[in-house]
Structure formats: structure tokens, C-alpha cells
Amino acid sequence: MRGTGVFQETSARPCTEAVPFSHLSLELGHLYMEDFAEGPERLHANFAAVRPWVEAARCSVPAPPDGKRPRVSTCFLVDDYFSRLATPAELLPALLKAAERAGLTIDYLARESGCAAADPGRPEGGGLAEAVLGRLVETPPPGSKGFRPPLSRTGWLTNGRRAPAQRTGAALNSAASWQPPSETGARGHSVFVDVELWDESAGRRTWSCAFLAAVWQLARLGLLRDNGKAVLTPTPWDRSGFPDDWDALPPLLRLNSSAAPFSAYYTCSVLPARFLPVEHAVRVILEQTHVDSGALGQFVERSGGEEFTVPPGVVERTSYVFPPGL
């Protein structure tokens, strides 16, 4: 008897575009537009506080088996999504000068709006954030009976079981009816997190900072593809200056022509402590993201070929530093 396998033309399966990898992608900070409005000294103080931790992060990268120095690239994410108080031409030269003054080099500059929709030609609501949303797979908590609406409708993602809603007056009067939320896989006690992925107003969706930061982490890890094609790829800076319109600036700009690759096996972000809750939410999102299998396969193959040990989980490849006083 002949087999019943399913045959498919090779051309029907999109090839997964390869991307080069550094050993570490090192984020030199993330500031709001309000921080930039405080002037050059605020920017310099930020980078001066970041620098010693940057050096420590560089030294923490395991030496490759070939004896060469680890490949480390630096990046900076500018918030042009939630507010635009100044133009790129006004803001970016001061940013680069402040980093240089502190002894730091920004290899790659990214726009946060690029994490929402990297392709300006796509219709409203499309782009990277929409693609990553389609890859979220909620982890059902133990004992769950599927009573809660899907995240595609609510815009909320959790790391466990929410407290049941009280529906009757009798239930409100009974202390025994209350049940606390619980974290899936908690070690001893729960740290329950309910993450808002977006909200909507007048039919327009606004992605949350936490969700865009999760997209940013996946991009830095080289795990994003669109029908096999690499996305958020660096555009070389021709040093002719910066435009007066944020939308005229590429989503990801390579400022340093000799920089190591943007994507990396590991990421480390040096951030103000106010971002700690956001990054906790990022980890909840990453733990429930189904990564493109082709991109993940390339990641594993490339790191294995270099005999460079990489943890199997995406979350384990991300790390953070929250310096005091930053």
C-alpha cells in the first residue's frame, strides 16, 4: 500500500532568511521624550551612570571557544510611539553627543514605533506587533476550564489563573467563595501578573509599552520573520544628518559601520528601575510566544556551530541591569 503522506511544492514553503549574530546585544538605555526634554545634561548623566554597568556586561560574556573576543553590539531605543516632543534632527545629535561624551558608542538606533509597524506601507494595525500577537499561545493554568475570553479579544495576558469574578450577592457575603489568583509554576508563593497588551480608542489600537518591548527583545534575538523574510533589519546611516520627520527615519539605523551584528544570542538591557515592572511583563509575554521555527532552527544551528552554549528558552537569553539612581 502506498503511503498517505502530504506532498507540497518546495516553492510553497518560504525559505527562512538568515541573519548574522553577535554574542550579546547590549541596550544602553531607554528614555521617554520627557527625559530628552530635560536637556543634554540629563542625557549625559544617564550615559555616565550606565557606562560602568556596560563594561561589566561586556566582561560577563563567555569567551568563544575559538579564543576570539566576543562579538558585542550596542543599541538604543527611542520612544517616538507614545509622544513626539522633538524631531530626529533636533533630538538625535544631542543623544549621540551625550553618549560619546560618556565614552559610549551607540551602534544601532531603533524607533519604538518600528516595533509596532516596521513597514510604513502596511495598513493601520499591521506590522510587527500584529504578527507577534498572532504567535501568542496562552498557557492554561492547572484546572482551567477555559472560562476566560481569549487574549485576541481582551488584550490581556496572564502568567496564571485570575481570581474568579463574583457574580451574585450571596457570593459577596461568603468569605469562603473567594479564591486568590495564582501563578502557574510558582515556587512557593505566587507572583501573579496580568499584562495589558493594548487598548483601543475611537477604533484605533495603541500597543502597550510592555508588548512593544517584547517585540524589541525578539528582534534583538533575531527571531522575527515575515513569511520567512527577516524584519527590522538595520539600514546603514549615510551620515548626511537626520530628517525632521520621525516617519522618514528607518525603524532601525546602523550608526557604526564597523559594528558587530544587531541580532545576538543573548540580550542585556541597562535600564532605569522604573522599567522593572515593564520588563517583568515582557518575560511573561515571551514565555507564551511561539517563535518562528525556521528562525529558531537557524539560531540553534549557528550557536551550535560556534560551540557557544545558549539556553533553550527565549526568556533565559534575556538579562537586565537596573543601576541605582539611574
Rank of each mutant, 00 (worst) to 15 (best):
residue 153 R to P: 01
residue 165 A to F: 13
residue 131 A to G: 04
residue 105 T to A: 12
residue 113 S to T: 09
residue 166 Q to N: 13
residue 167 R to N: 13
residue 115 C to S: 09
residue 109 L to Q: 08
residue 167 R to P: 10
residue 126 G to P: 05
residue 166 Q to E: 15
residue 104 L to T: 00
residue 103 G to H: 14
residue 129 A to T: 09
residue 162 R to L: 08
residue 107 D to M: 06
residue 105 T to S: 07
residue 115 C to F: 14
residue 114 G to L: 04
residue 126 G to I: 07
residue 107 D to S: 07
residue 165 A to C: 06
residue 124 E to W: 00
residue 163 A to P: 01
residue 114 G to E: 01
residue 160 G to H: 02
residue 159 N to P: 03
residue 157 L to M: 00
residue 119 D to M: 06
residue 105 T to N: 08
residue 132 V to F: 12
residue 140 P to N: 05
residue 117 A to I: 06
residue 115 C to Y: 15
residue 138 E to F: 05
residue 124 E to K: 07
residue 132 V to R: 12
residue 127 G to N: 06
residue 109 L to R: 13
residue 150 P to Q: 05
residue 153 R to Y: 05
residue 101 R to M: 11
residue 150 P to E: 09
residue 161 R to T: 03
residue 101 R to F: 04
residue 133 L to E: 14
residue 132 V to K: 05
residue 136 L to G: 08
residue 153 R to N: 06
residue 109 L to I: 02
residue 154 T to F: 04
residue 138 E to G: 01
residue 145 K to Y: 02
residue 105 T to P: 01
residue 99 A to V: 11
residue 111 R to Y: 13
residue 106 I to D: 00
residue 122 R to W: 14
residue 160 G to C: 03
residue 154 T to R: 03
residue 136 L to R: 07
residue 129 A to K: 05
residue 148 R to V: 09
residue 110 A to S: 04
residue 132 V to N: 09
residue 105 T to H: 13
residue 115 C to Q: 11
residue 140 P to I: 11
